[in-house]
Structure formats: C-alpha cells, structure tokens
C-alpha cells in the first residue's frame, strides 16, 4: 500500500499537475503536496501524488554505517 515509485518530471501542467516518467511509462501526477517542483526533478510518487523530492545523496548516517560494515566484514572486503 505504501509503495512509492520514483518518477522524473517531464512537463508541468496546470492545476497542480505534471507529466512524469517512470521507466517507459508516462503518467499524469498531482504535484500539490511538493511545492516548487521543476521539470527534470526526481520525485517519489504514491497513489498518483508526488510525496517528496528524491535527493542524490544518501545522508551522513548511512555513509558512516557503511564504514563500520566494511570493518565488521573483515579484511577481505574490497
């Protein structure tokens, strides 16, 4: 139910709508829950509504955790 799929905004349309692309599928989505979207933005879409912008970076906590995982997994880790 809470599945959300990344979409790329292709074109903004009137009335809080945009054309968005996921894989080869173009869909019209609602944009009112994420203000200020632009063409080219990558968003998470749930039940026909963009619910958040996706950022390229993963966040500091995840980066630090990977360091620890590499140590835990031992010296043969590449």
């Amino acid at each position: 139910m809470c599945l959300a799929v990344p979409h790329r905004i292709i074109a903004l349309r009137a009335a809080n709508r945009a054309l968005a692309l996921a894989g080869a599928v173009e869909t019209e989505i609602r944009t009112d829950l994420v203000p200020g979207l632009k063409e080219g933005d990558l968003v998470l879409v749930h039940a026909g509504f963009a619910i958040e912008r996706l950022l390229p970076e993963e966040g500091e906590e995840l980066e630090r955790l990977w360091e620890e995982v590499r140590e835990l997994a031992g010296p043969q880790t590449r």
Partner: peptide
Amino acid sequence: VASLYGRAVRPLGNAEARNA
C-alpha cells in the same frame, strides 16, 4: 531513531502534505 533513507526522508517530513 537512525535515518538510513536520507534520499527520501527529511528529518521533519513533508510539511505541505501534513498541512493538507
């Protein structure tokens, strides 16, 4: 509460959605 989904989850969430 660790945050490991930083590419999608902001610490304060989506305020616009919560306003609605």
